[in-house]
Nucleic acid binder design. Sequence first.
DNA 1: CCGAGGAGTTACAACTTCTAACGAACACGA
DNA 2: TCGTGTTCGTTAGAAGTTGTAACTCCTCGG
Lengths: 223, 223
Amino acid sequence: MTEAEATKSPRERYRAQVRAEIKARAWEQIAAAGASALSLNAIAKQMGMSGPALYRYFGGRDELITELVRDAYRSLADTLRATAAEHGPDVTALAHALRAWALADPQRYFLVYGTPVPGYHAPDDITAIAAETMATLLDACAALPAPPDDAATPFDEHLASHRAWAAGHPAPPATLRRALAFWTRMHGVLSLELAGHFTGMGFDPEHLFAAELDALTGPSEAG
Amino acid sequence: MTEAEATKSPRERYRAQVRAEIKARAWEQIAAAGASALSLNAIAKQMGMSGPALYRYFGGRDELITELVRDAYRSLADTLRATAAEHGPDVTALAHALRAWALADPQRYFLVYGTPVPGYHAPDDITAIAAETMATLLDACAALPAPPDDAATPFDEHLASHRAWAAGHPAPPATLRRALAFWTRMHGVLSLELAGHFTGMGFDPEHLFAAELDALTGPSEAG
DNA sequence: CCGAGGAGTTACAACTTCTAACGAACACGA
DNA sequence: TCGTGTTCGTTAGAAGTTGTAACTCCTCGG
């Protein structure tokens, strides 16, 4: 990384630095008021230069946001992969890492899992990062001990022949099912928590998250 | 309703009609391009009048969106309540009604459960509608037969003393826990499905939804 | 019938994204 | 060392947006 940056020409290093600062300001704005309130002009003014100058660095607002979305996916995938590298394929560690990542910057989470724009389709490289994240999750679910009553569900049979997303993974349908359950349940709690739908209800969202995680890892020994 | 509208003055009836048409156009725009792309000018142009005229009917863009959010909450609460009135307190019927409501207009779902604007706090009447929805869900969960291994979880103990949201409901903590699980899991699947995170993965989201619902209603007899 | 108030208009301010054209600074090769 | 050419940042401007102010006109109600 040091070598890669050092070998670039001065212009390229400067350009990379300005791009990085633009993105940093953009993240500040998004954290403060959401992605829809992101203003190129405001960023330019903060950086002491005038509006159109930013178009040297990003094709426009959409391109900047796409870049931030890509970074968000990348950050999530790296965080989970690092967690798996440190704790092994442990679904509990993954869950806590996911929650910490989400709470650290809710708007970054929503950039990945929030309301989509109807027409928008993410570039292929972004969906590739998403697949990488799913692979990490699948590995952890494969390492999960099979529960005592592990009869094949109807959904397992469906997954047996509809597993394009896990084509390169040797996990059986039950593992795929558990991975999907893990993903959707963690997201269900986190999404509602970050959106503030639990505020005023009295309970601690962290306990709900832990309860759902317990139900996932040990459906029988949870009591 | 007929009486209430008929007794109003002509001016008020006209005003209500124009407000309704504005909201109808707004829903079209939101369904087509999302809430962030809603343009008062575009609505005015569609209706054959010029921009500022709309400010007679809505204080501004934010007020119009808040009104649409209110209508979305109201629609969801009414749909679930009507389902409960027809099928009784059946959590399965509620789940299918919720999914149908969500699929009928994804952006309406996201207006309720989508990415929040950091600073925004919903008016009290909207949170009251949300509480109404939770009450309907609680009733259905209370009618659910207790599973065989129904030992109190740690989260149940937490809920026993942190149940402000169910203050007026006699349901025990285990029922509260099941209601929260129902809510978060259904939302987890629906949210990811509507946002398109399952596209290209190969499986049918409806089957996943059904599987999660099965796990919720009968954890033992599901196999 | 006539006045008061509501509806819609245009004009304007202050934003936004984004394009075009220009000048100045800088890195690089001869 | 000295052009030269690329790149950066600028201003100007078009085409949008939300929202306010002032004015006209019509209509409803006493």
